[in-house]
Nucleic acid binder design. Sequence first.
DNA 1: TCTGGGGTCCTAGGACCC
DNA 2: TCTGGGGTCCTAGGACCC
Length: 441
Amino acid sequence: MRSEASVLHLDLDAFYASVEQRDKPSLRGKPVIVGGTGGRGVVATCSYEARVFGVRSAMSTREARARCPHAAFLGGRFPAYGEASRIVMGLLREVSPLVEPLSLDEAFVDLAAGGVTDFSLEGLTAFGHELRARVAEATGGLTASVGIGTSKFMAKVASDLDKPDGLVVVEPGREQQLLRPMSVKVIPGVGPATAERLRRMGVSTVADLQSRGEEELVLELGQAHGHGLWRLSRALDDRPVVAEREAKSVSVEGTYEEDLTDRRVMEAVLTRQASSVATRLLKHGLSGRTISIKVRLHDFTTLSRSTTLPSPTDSASTIARLARTMLGDLDPSGGVRLLGVGVSGLADWVQDDLFGSVAEAEPEEELPELPELPSRMRAQWWPGQDVVHARMGRGWVWGAGSGVVTVRFETAETGPGPVRSYKADDPELAPWTRPTDDEVS
DNA sequence: TCTGGGGTCCTAGGACCC
DNA sequence: TCTGGGGTCCTAGGACCC
């Protein structure tokens, strides 16, 4: 908690639905519901006109149709949302370099790290109004709710107080007074399960929570959660605004209109999902050691299985093979409504100056010289993939890209090593050969 | 015919090592 | 021959967030 209200939270109102209304005037003033439109879809966002009928985010589309049959039901145009989001995040970065996006429509901004110097109530209020006006102008009329406070927690609570199209500044020292009468559900991390446990303890407001000792909360809710709630109930929040957070996992999942019962179909689904995960890993220059599958049965019980490899992969075929093998451990014969594939334990490997995770763990390790490598290795172009796998001795080299081949050298002895990029027509790559059939498995 | 998709973080238990 | 902790890694599941 800071002595000045220098953390800002901005939240675009009913974001997806507002973009639709902006782009299609006939939808303005009408209930608009964006989300899954199939039999098992849920509402992602709905316009305020739809909320009047009791439609809410995460409600099943079936129920939303029952409550508001005359609404426009839309599947969503994510490129348009992404573009609007980029514009807004760009505006925020003009305010301060420390911008932490939470999703397409939400971000924290550290005002103290930027150009703002007047943290008086009047100064911040004027600043907030101006920022909202800039957002509306730059996005063709999208409105945002803004909260400003002494911490992330307070800024977020504040932005929720006057939605939509609102601005609330919580002055330093007024946090307790504001929070005490509120439901414990305002605290991030208190969802339905925690709220119910707290209710059984006789805790429903923040003031109730403040009356409980830290030990009691830790005993009831676990170390991290209990300690965290004890602090947040007192508005104690030191979490910094963090601009660049690295991805920790990449996953793809899908819920099917009808339960899958044929194992061969499930394997085909996993294979396709593995490809899609691999494509995204490649696009972002990532690879990961842990491959997971997620299986949701007809009765909604959710199972997961994972396997950790000795070194990271971005290979669609490797991910797919492991995913199918893990499915073999499970009994999905009663029907499966959801299947998913994910990769975690990610390591960067595209930037020239980066080393792999194993090398990072043991920085002293001597790594082989790269320039002489190409003449000594053989490359494998995996069928249908813009990916190169090359083998050298007992080691492996990965590469990928369009027009550029990026290679990471690794041997069993040294682990992941340095990375180098070549143009696809670089003569250094000439010695590489296409794989023979027995090398592609 | 209730209940998406993409994530993050935490916990608990077991293996394994010192 | 029996009894330790501590630390790390891995797996499975669950809560939560937008």
